[in-house]
């Protein structure tokens, strides 16, 4: 009797344990969709409470991101210019390529760490992650599709009707569900596992060489970190960094604010994954990191709105740096490369 009792208890425990294990085990081919909030990053800006990330929403967002159906002639997708292996930028292309080989006027920026951004695009014309996709979809030199037509095309596909139902409980495909799905995918694109990150978080693999450490020190001494601030390496402000001295072809932030003081200003980009995101600057006019440092050391063009940080006390534009200093800063910048991010199978096309 006593033994039977114990057996029964053991059986019950066993059963409970098995159930517990099963329920906790993620289903096969369902990726981890918990949002990575690195300890060395500030608080995110995007509120995921309004758009909770779910496996289904993430999967739908990913499918949409890589689907050329978003363009008028089904030729280009978001991922066409925001390539995972280029940290979701368009490596080797100075300016973005749209449908019918149309060229934009600016470099396709890296889609990463989006939930920390306060504004989007080089001129900050969009101020909510949910609205970013709409801009690229309707831009005549990018995907050039009309949103109502895109809705019709998506509704025609059984796959999408099912995926929208799985993600949002209804096969009604509308602006809210389309943008929220895209945001769920983009929100997940967090890059914070570079050697530098591991160094500041005291994690394994976080070893920097003496040159890299000197580069980091110089990065601060030369006040690079005023604009490329925090571990996001941008303060997300708009500045004129002296790439050009006339802005008739692209007035930058002025187009959004109509404030003459904003002429020629562009959003400060992050410096993460620079090895993947060449060419550099808002117009993709500089091809190498060496040339970028040379620009800041001696190539800054003066104009009315040039950032004051790029003007020396005697009025000379630029940041004085020796060649050796530049080399060390570059060595440091390369520690911001995050191979884990670009190889993450969850984000691959």
């Amino acid at each position: 009797m006593k033994i039977k009792y114990i057996k029964l208890i053991a059986l019950l425990f066993g059963l409970a344990f098995t159930t517990f294990i099963t329920s906790c085990k993620p289903e096969d081919n369902q990726p981890d969709i918990s949002l990575f909030l690195p300890a060395n990053f500030p608080q995110p800006v995007y509120n995921t409470d309004t758009n909770p990330i779910t496996p289904e929403g993430f999967a739908l967002g990913k499918k949409l991101f890589f689907d050329p159906i978003l363009s008028r002639d089904s030729s280009v997708s978001c991922g066409f210019c925001h390539i995972p292996t280029a940290a979701f930028s368009n490596a080797a292309h100075p300016v973005s390529h749209g449908i019918e080989d149309k060229l934009g006027i600016r470099n396709a920026p890296a889609v990463m760490n989006m939930v920390w951004h306060t504004t989007f695009f080089w001129d900050g014309g969009v101020h909510n992650l949910d609205f970013t996709g709409l801009n690229a979809i309707q831009n005549p030199v990018e995907m050039d599709e009309q949103l109502p037509n895109l809705m019709v095309k998506l509704k025609r596909q059984q796959t999408y009707r099912k995926m929208f139902t799985d993600a949002f409980g209804s096969d009604e495909i509308n602006t809210q569900t389309l943008t929220k799905a895209l945001s769920q995918f983009m929100a997940m694109l967090v890059s914070a596992n570079s050697r530098y990150d591991k160094y500041v978080r005291n994690e394994a693999g976080g070893n920097l060489t003496p040159d890299e450490l000197e580069g980091l020190q110089l990065f601060k001494e030369k006040k690079c970190n005023t604009c490329h601030a925090t571990d996001l390496f941008s303060d997300f402000s708009f500045r004129n960094n002296g790439i050009k001295d006339s802005f008739d072809d692209d007035k930058g932030r002025f187009l959004v604010t109509l404030n003459p003081n904003d002429t020629g200003k562009f959003k400060v980009p992050s410096l993460r994954n620079l090895q993947y995101t060449y060419p550099y600057m808002h117009n993709g006019s500089i091809g190498t990191l060496e040339a970028v440092l040379q620009h800041y050391a001696g190539g800054v063009l003066p104009s009315q709105t040039l950032d004051s940080l790029l003007i020396q006390p005697d009025g000379t534009p630029g940041i004085p740096m020796t060649e050796l200093e530049q080399t060390k800063i570059i060595a440091f910048l390369k520690t911001l490369t995050d191979p884990q991010f670009i190889k993450d199978p969850r984000f691959a096309e």
Partner: peptide, 10 residues
């Protein structure tokens, strides 16, 4: 609001 909204400058 199609055609009545600036996507590039929300």
């Amino acid at each position: 609001a199609q055609g009545m909204y600036w996507m590039w400058n929300s």
